[in-house]
Design a protein around this nucleic acid. Structure first.
Lengths: 105, 105
DNA sequence: TAAAGTTTGTAAGATTTTCTTACAACAATG
DNA sequence: CATTGTTGTAAGAAAATCTTACAAACTTTA
């Protein structure tokens, strides 16, 4: 069971040059943050990177953290923790839903 | 007075190749519809076209009309009429707002 | 029906954008 | 100090886009 809430925000359609314009980050930085496991663009068949608006927002958050002096390694750790929390919430929701639908059937 | 409701949907960030993938239209067709005054992509400094998700939706509508045999010229006329109606509605709303705020001041 | 207009494909050649790899410089950390 | 982290820059290749032009097939108009 899954609710595909995929909106425009998550479609990977933006090239790195545009991401650069939107975020102010250099292309070098954007690629480096990928290397460090902070962003995961899609790739075209021939290999050009495609980002979503969600990725752009994430990169702006990263830029802020970097300005505060936070290193990519730490940013990565925090992101992992957040992802973990998100997963837990999701599982709880799934449990609620199952309970609900089992009850009424 | 203006309410900038510009969301991701209106940001012109998508290249023509991606628009092609999203719509199924050939790049030739996409450029031709621009030539006929149906879409208005932005341009990068050096001239490459940038479309919004709104443009993509519009192009899909155009594709449907074309399949029904409607010619670009007629599509253009219809679009102008729609735009006219939109303008009227906007002006009415502006009037309502002015009346409202004048009343209470 | 002839002429004019519409729509799309394809090709060529130029230009723009992106890619990877590598090296260098400097900063931050232990 | 030695190591790791961060970013710039450069080179050369590859991918993506641009404009212009011609042609074919189809539709509308006079």
């Amino acid at each position: 069971m899954s609710f595909a809430l995929t909106s425009y925000k998550d479609k990977k359609v933006i090239t790195i040059g545009v991401v650069h314009e939107l975020t102010g980050l250099s292309e070098r930085q954007i690629r480096y943050y990928e290397e460090r496991g902070l962003v995961f663009p899609d790739r075209s068949k021939k290999g050009t990177r495609k980002y979503s608006f969600h990725d752009v927002e994430l990169l702006m958050d990263i830029a802020n953290k970097r300005e505060e002096g936070v290193q990519t390694y730490e940013i990565r750790q925090d992101m992992k923790k957040e992802e973990k929390k998100r997963q837990v919430r999701e599982e709880m929701l799934r449990g609620q839903l199952n309970a609900h639908f089992n009850m009424r059937k």
